[in-house]
Design a protein around this nucleic acid. Structure first.
Length: 274
DNA sequence: CGGTAGACTTGTAAGG
DNA sequence: CGTATACAAGTCTACC
């Protein structure tokens, strides 16, 4: 699913529609998406609560609710979260619906049903696996070249795999990992500790550029992604390598190749990336 | 600790 | 046109 730019776009879209609104009813059509507590207990805990803030950490969305509790949503591969007019939703993949004390509802739709929902007291957020162990995000102050150098120095694993590790860098996913390596001119299966200082500099710059452009373009709709208004993003028109197997590299014209790296599809230009 | 394969789940595209 | 296939924006667990 959505990586950092997509989740952030959704957050920005939804914020003004849901902050300061009260949750007046909860429809849970697929209870197993609620990982904690039970679906019934989840409903009881969020009912009648006001939404104070909408935040994002990595690929997680956090609805800060009245009463020092937080509703945590991870969209995984195909989750969509959008605002709709009450009574005007037709979506065969709708899984959960939050009714607000406005004329709008917050709809969660998910074709592959891999998404995860939790509600936790704020002091127990550490129980949401992966949430508190996120590494620094691209474009953030602690995400520096020296940080990259430090985490890669002693690791022999493939650079592509490490870029996907959320504990090292928060928010990158398969599309932007490939795009960042393409922009930096680095072959995805290079051992991480083999990058020299110029390459580390180029990769750091490339990650920030790729994420920044994706944010400006309101995310990449390769297939399922939709923003908070159920609209497509625009960044799919600016991809260099992702999903472009057999097509020409925009830089050199060589044919883009697809391989499998650590179980994930990986796209690169054999001419530009070493 | 590091790294990888498999699992979860179901729709859609590509290809025969 | 149906599907005997392949692949998918992610992460968690088991295992070496």
């Amino acid at each position: 699913m959505p990586e950092l730019p997509e989740v952030e776009t959704i957050r920005r879209n939804l914020e003004s529609h849901i902050v300061d609104k009260q949750i007046t009813a909860v429809d849970i059509f697929l209870p197993r998406l609620v990982k904690w507590p039970s679906a019934d207990e989840f409903r009881a805990r969020v009912l009648k609560k006001k939404i104070n803030r909408l935040e994002r950490k990595g690929k997680y969305l956090l609805l800060r609710l009245q009463g020092d509790i937080t509703l945590i949503i991870h969209l995984r591969m195909t989750g969509q979260l959008y605002i709709a007019e009450a009574g005007h939703v037709t979506d065969r993949f709708e899984r959960i619906r939050l009714h607000l004390d406005s004329e709008e509802v917050l709809v969660y739709s998910d074709a592959r049903t891999l998404g995860t929902w939790y509600v936790m007291p704020d002091h127990e957020l550490g129980r949401v696996h992966g949430l508190e162990s996120l590494g620094p995000e691209p474009l953030s102050e602690p995400f520096t070249v020296s940080y990259l150098a430090a985490i890669f120095r002693s690791r022999t694993g493939k650079i592509k795999s490490l870029l996907l590790n959320q504990e090292l860098i928060g928010g990158l996913g398969n599309i932007y990992a490939d795009e960042s390596l393409a922009l930096a001119g680095i072959y995805p299966e290079r051992p991480a500790n083999s990058l020299n200082s110029d390459e580390l500099e180029a990769l750091h710059q490339a990650i920030n550029t790729v994420i920044s452009q994706a944010l400006q373009n309101a995310g990449t709709t390769f297939r399922d992604y939709r923003n908070g208004y159920r609209q497509e993003g625009h960044n799919q028109h600016h991809l260099r390598v992702y999903g472009r197997k057999g097509q020409a590299c925009p830089i050199c014209g060589s044919t883009i190749v697809r391989i499998e790296t650590a179980g994930r599809g990986t796209h690169y230009c054999p001419q530009c990336q070493h």
